[in-house]
Design a protein around this nucleic acid. Structure first.
Lengths: 130, 130
DNA sequence: AGTTGACCTGGAGCGCACTCCAGGTCGTAC
DNA sequence: GTACGACCTGGAGTGCGCTCCAGGTCAACT
């Protein structure tokens, strides 16, 4: 089974342009072509794409994703470095989550303040008119 | 007490250029100036900056931070909208955290796989030689 | 009086990750 | 056989968030 670029875009959630872009910058190995020269993405291509989009979601820069992509071609020889990249990224992600959680506290605090002010605004006038 | 731009940069963790940039794009009200025309940041300026950097950390686009900044000038009149922005951002942050946690699982799974492969590589040769 | 160093301005430049475009090819449907 | 739509290519353009630069001012020190 293989997929047209439109179908691959639909399944990966990336745009057609982005798929071609990823191929250009060597994030993605050039997929097979059909008889008319059109890209025919394989199941493996899509699997790799879905992992790529995960890495992207974690905020990994394309530079690094490309390094990882290149290392795949070296099989076991590149495995150590590939793992190291993932371990490093896991660290970055946990740090990012912690950072976001701190910000969440600040946001909650601020929002609570607005709540309290609203409370005052809606109750004080009654006291003043009393 | 007021602070030079260098001092404000040090305290906020932003660069001097970024401070001037934030002022230019109206994220930051123009600070006071000393007799020589140099910026003199107040305590309040720094407080606002530290909140701004929090918002930035959450991934809020500058556009939106600017909207929030503008609403501050309208006092109580802008409070509802300001709160709405924070509530919306809180939602975005919790979603982002959830997304990152999903990615974390994928990373852990992949890393575990590398661990297992390493295990195999280091133990199999002994079995083979037996 | 001269040098230094921090600061000033307006504007240009940069890296990232796409996104869009013009002009062309191909296979299918009418 | 021609109209259509999906696809192709190389290259230019975009939005974001800074970052850097040239050329100038000013206060303090020697």
């Amino acid at each position: 089974m293989s997929y047209s670029i439109a179908e691959a875009a639909r399944r990966s959630g990336l745009s057609i342009d982005t798929l071609r872009y990823y191929e250009r910058i060597r994030l993605l190995d050039p997929p097979a072509r059909d008889t008319a020269g059109r890209r025919a993405y394989s199941e493996e291509d899509l699997t790799w794409l879905s992992f790529l989009t995960r890495l992207r979601t974690t905020g990994m820069p394309i530079r690094r994703m490309r390094e990882y992509a290149m290392l795949r071609h070296r099989g076991q020889a590149g495995a150590g470095r590939r793992k190291a990249i993932l371990v490093e990224q896991r660290k970055a992600v946990t740090e990012r989550i912690a950072e976001l959680e701190t910000c969440l506290e600040v946001l909650d605090y601020k929002i609570d303040n607005y709540d309290r002010v609203e409370q005052r605004v809606t109750t004080l006038p009654q006291e003043a008119s009393a």
